[in-house]
Design a protein around this nucleic acid. Sequence first.
RNA 1: GCCCGCUUGGCGGAAUCGGUAGACGCAAGGGACUUAAAAUCCCUCGGUCGUAAGGCUGUGCCGGUUCGAGUCCGGCAGCGGGCACCA
Length: 867
Amino acid sequence: MTRYNPKEAEPRWQARWEDGKAFEARPDPDGKKYREKYYVLEMFPYPSGRIHMGHVRNYTMGDIVARYKRARGFNVLHPMGWDAFGMPAENAARERGIHPAIWTYENIATMRGQLRAMGLSIDWARELATCDPEYYGHEQRMFLDFLERGLAYRKESSVNWDPVDETVLANEQVIDGRGWRSGALVEQRQLTQWFFKITAYADDLLTSVNALERWPEKVRLMQSNWIGRSEGLRMRFAITGAGAKQLPGNGELEVYTTRHDTIFGMSFCAISADHPIALALASGNPAIAEFNKQCRDIAGTAEALERAEKLGFDTGLRVRHPFDANRDAPIYIANFVLMGYGTGAIFGCPAHDQRDLDFARKYGLTVLPVVAPEGGAGITIENDAYTDNSDGRLINSDFLNGMDIAAAKAEVAKRMQAAGAGEPAVTFRLRDWGVSRQRYWGCPIPVIHCAACGVVPVPEDQLPVTLPRDVTFDKPGNPLAHHPDWKHVACPACGKDAVRETDTFDTFVDSSWYFARFCTPHAAAPIERNEADYWMPVDQYIGGVEHAILHLLYSRFFTRAMKEAGYARDAEPFAGLFTQGMVTHETYKDETGAWLFPEQIIKREGGAVHRDTGAPVQIGKIESMSKSKRNVVDPEAIIAHYGADTARWFVVSDTPPERDIEWTESGIEGAWRFTQRVWRLVDESLARLPAGHSAPPIAIGPASLAMRKATHTAIAAVTEDIERFHFNRAVARIYELSNSINGFINQTKADDGAGFALREALESMILLLGPMMPHLAEECWAALGHSTMLVHENWPLADAALTRQDQVTIIVQVNGKRRGELTLAPGTANNEIESRALAMEAVARHMDGKTARKVVIVPDRIVNVVV
RNA sequence: GCCCGCUUGGCGGAAUCGGUAGACGCAAGGGACUUAAAAUCCCUCGGUCGUAAGGCUGUGCCGGUUCGAGUCCGGCAGCGGGCACCA
């Protein structure tokens, strides 16, 4: 008996696949139209240095789909690339003095080797890295097209500014109001930045997401909530008193509300600290200026905001109630009103909005309930606003009294419209996408700023605008801005001295179109439509849920923009999406509370000890693998020890792919045992197998027939499970088949057709596990006497005649409780089933001498005698 | 706070349409082979009563619909995720 040695076999098969260009994707092969395309893509990795188990899981799933679809006759595109721009490369430069490009390309080389060792069926000829000018030059080109179409624009916007590092921080880089690296207090700064007009597609992005049937419901919902459509009324109130006309808005305050039914409960209006009126007032009033600044500083830090008290500043201005000339309400500047949403101004109805209520209580404003719950005995408001917006009738509201909420809304909208003081409005939560980053390691934004001509696009023949290589990271701020000469250029329009834009793109821009570039990765244009139209959209996209909103939404926007600029046929990039769960592991701490790596501990009965010192180890929670908690297992070490197939098998066994999986030592051991078991089954069978391609035997014995049935049942089940992404179930079905084969081999006598049945069973099992364990499958396939590679084989087909059961077990119940079973031919008539059931001793016993009141029969399944 | 999801043996999980709850794997226990170990193979494995046959009970908790509920409906609890002054 020989043992399977993955260390030797895996590189050998990888080389053979490569030599045979087995995974090279060609559009429309042989000029024929009958092979349907299938584009499977996993989210490309950031080249951090080494692959982690999350990558192994993600890429194994994608590879299963790719190999399966290939075997089903599809023309499969399965590429790989690198999301290669981003901060860690600059951090490495600052900390270790290594150039971002060197660091990045070294990491790519390492990780490419690791991915290759996994035996993924990838078309490496299409590999790309976003930090390559060959890639980002096309991005710049498309940006200029977007600019021309008004899909990209510049505006001033406030950012989190770290005054020590002289850099803009993302929200998640601000911790307790301080920069994550410098620890300096973060300020809000107004900067002119580039934006993509994603809001232009807000409605389309929202309605279309619901049509993406092959996306998880959860992701569609998250996107819907993120876009956040609301229907309401925009209305204008007259500001009373002298001088009102001089204010922005020409004497009117425009507010947006979705609760116009509560207009009679209005006790104040509030405007944002950035509202034009607030800004106008601030210029003549230091107290207001100070208050506005305070609001902005709080707004910068998400955490502080959470507990922040409602604060207001009474402007002294008042608005007249639109339906009651005798009523008016004060205008406050309030810290909880956002300039970026609606009109930046609201009317406050404390009785029916919690924020308004908190504010009103603090400043002693009137709280008048105007909606009472249906059929209720009146309403009083203490500390909780009545915010139900579907159940209730209007009170204290003049002509609205007695109406339900919907009717009251309609009535108010009608009257405001008639008065020319309001109109229905749809508002989105979604904001335009700010893409400027004050960093070096990103795609340069291809524009030039000229004192005379303004913003001038870099002419096409000067693209790509490449990053200068000679940069220093010895001082804070953006190295591109510090570079002695890179930014100084002649204005393309007038020829005078001008400067380049030194901001680079958010790396989400790079990942918003890489899937399209994969279709024609070497084209001179960003996209070659003929080929791209053939491959796009991605049929199956696979990645982590953490990208459920931003990456996927940005890609959906970008594809729409590309379509508008003529680079794409379809608006939606990803027809099918699967979000896989994370890989978790137990955590370990020593006596001092320091985290320990899994390989530093030994498990003992009831606990664990340190491998070297023998000191007790505390076993902590099972958490997502992370370097900081040291609960990581290195894929390279696992592959070196067990081989790629075992690792691949483990990450799809037992746990449904969308859920978090726990990595365990015993789990990988179990997978390893199965790897060897498959080889052994094949190896031990060789002596008793007939040659390949023999016809089914004319006579077949009962054991061999049962084997054939088990084989075809497994084929049918595994096929369906892979189609539905139930890899863990497919694995279970393959285990069952291997158990059947093992039993078949171990039985003493071989009946008619045994050799044929055994070969069929083994070959089917090998074909079925091929997508999961491709190297082992090739090795077995060759051992079974095949000279061609398994990657070129077709997927096995289940013979319906062999998956049909010829005996069914019918459960016999009395009053819904299981009392026995009948084994009958499928399709047995109901009266036959009934009489057989009633004849059973166990049934008679539990009927207790009573007569059957009713007999419920589900053919081939169950019979229930009710007494 | 709002929205969404989940809850099944010691563990991961299976049960596609309301019809045998616990497939398959892991762990555990017993046995075979072996000088021994490893590897491998066989058996047992929700709880409980019983020598057994066979009962009873059991899918987070309470209630409902149904001949029949892990599955459907209502309520509650716990865990997880998303959003979070979005008017």
